[in-house]
Design a protein around this nucleic acid. Structure first.
Lengths: 197, 197
DNA sequence: GTCTATATTACGATAGAC
DNA sequence: GTCTATCGTAATATAGAC
C-alpha cells in the first residue's frame, strides 16, 4: 500500500483536510465552501465523496473513538495490580491522543447539536465509565489515596490528559520529546508536582 | 429552547440567557433566532440591547477574564514562598471557575474566527504566561520537582483545572462540596494520586 | 421595548455538462 | 471526478409601526 501524492481525492484523504479545517474554525463555523477552498476542489465535488458535512464528522470521531477504545482492550484485565493498568491506560491514551491528534481534538470538542454529535458524546461517556471502573479497582487495592473521590479523580486525571489537544503540536522526529511528555503526565498525575520530602 | 421569562431585559440580564445558549449549542451553532426564543423576545428586540451576537460574546468573555485576572492581582507577590502563591492562584482559579462557570466555560471554548475571539485568546495567553512565571519562581526556590519541565507542568496543571467546565454543575447549597473539590484539585496536582509510601 | 416585515447575504445541497 | 450554475432555506441585521 504505497501512499502516493494523489491529484484526486478519496473519502479518506478528504477527511484529513476536513478535520484540519474543523479544528481551526470549529465544526459549526466551517461551511462546505471553507472545505472546498481548503481541499482545492468545488463544493459539489465534495458531495461526490461524502453525503455531507456530518458524514465527515462521523468518520473523524469514529477514528478517534476506535483508537481510544483499543487502549482499553490492550490493558490486561486479569494480571497485576489495577493501578498498573490505570497507569498503562493513561500512558497509552496520551500516545493515541498524540498519534491521532486532529481526530481526538475534534472528538473532544463535540457539543451535541446533531445526532452524530450526541452519539459521539455517548461513546465518550462509555470510555470514561470504563476508566473509572479501573480506578475503582485500584482504589480497592489500596493503591490510590483514600481521601480523594474516585469519580472526581478520574475526571481530573483525564481532564489533564485531554488538555493536551489544546497545545500539543507534533514536531518532526520528536520521539524522545513525546516519550518525555508521556512520562511527565503519568508522573505528575500519580506523584504530584511538589518536591518529595 | 423555549424558556420564556417575560421581564424587561437589560444588556446584563440578556447576557445570562445568551451565555447559557452559547454553551449549550456552541457560539457558532447559536443563531439570533435561538437567542430570541430562549429570551422570549423577538430578534429585533435583541438588537435594541446589543449591536449583535459578537457583542454578547465580548461581554461574556470579558466577565470571565476579569475574574481570572483578579486572582493574579490578589496573590501577594512579595511575601512567602512562590509555591504558596501558585497553590493560592490554583485554588482561587477553581473558585472563580465555579462562581462564573458559564462565562469561563464560554471563554475556554473560544476558537478564533472573529476579532473578539482572537482578542480573548490573546488575553488567555497572557494569563497563562503570568501563571507560568509564578511556577518558574516556585521551581527556582526548589519547591517543585526538578525533573519536570515548568512550562509543561503549568499547562497540565491548568488543563486539569480548566477541565472542570466540562462536568462541574453547581448544586444549591453545596458550599462544603465546593471546598472539597477545590482541596482535591490542589492536593492531586501537588501531591499526586498514589498512596504515599 | 417590543413587535412584524423584509432586505441581503450565506449556507447546504442538487442538476447536469464535460 | 470535477466543474458551473442554481435551488430552497436560514442566517444576520434593519425599517418602521405601536
Amino acid at each position: 500500500m504505497t501512499t502516493v501524492r494523489r491529484d484526486t481525492y478519496t473519502p479518506e484523504t478528504l477527511l484529513s483536510v476536513a478535520v484540519q479545517v474543523f479544528n481551526e474554525r470549529g465544526y459549526d463555523g466551517t461551511s462546505m465552501e471553507h472545505l472546498s477552498k481548503a481541499a482545492g476542489i468545488s463544493k459539489s465535488s465534495i458531495y461526490h465523496h461524502v453525503a455531507g458535512k456530518e458524514e465527515l464528522l462521523r468518520r473523524a470521531v469514529s477514528r478517534a473513538l476506535d483508537g481510544l477504545f483499543a487502549v482499553l482492550d490492550e490493558a490486561p484485565a486479569s494480571r497485576g495490580r489495577a493501578i498498573e493498568r490505570v497507569e498503562y491506560v493513561t500512558r497509552r491514551t496520551v500516545e493515541v491522543l498524540m498519534a491521532e491528534l486532529p481526530y481526538v481534538t475534534l472528538l473532544l470538542r463535540v457539543r451535541g447539536n446533531t445526532r452524530t454529535e450526541r452519539w459521539a458524546l455517548e461513546r465518550r461517556r462509555e470510555f470514561d465509565h470504563r476508566v473509572a471502573d479501573l480506578m475503582k479497582a485500584a482504589a480497592a487495592e489500596g493503591d490510590l489515596r483514600a481521601d480523594v473521590d474516585i469519580k472526581l479523580a478520574t475526571r481530573l486525571l483525564f481532564g489533564m490528559v485531554n488538555s493536551l489537544v489544546e497545545w500539543y503540536r507534533p514536531q518532526p522526529g520528536d520521539g524522545a520529546d513525546r516519550q518525555q511528555l508521556v512520562d511527565t503526565v503519568v508522573h505528575m498525575a500519580f506523584d504530584g508536582l511538589r518536591t518529595s520530602h
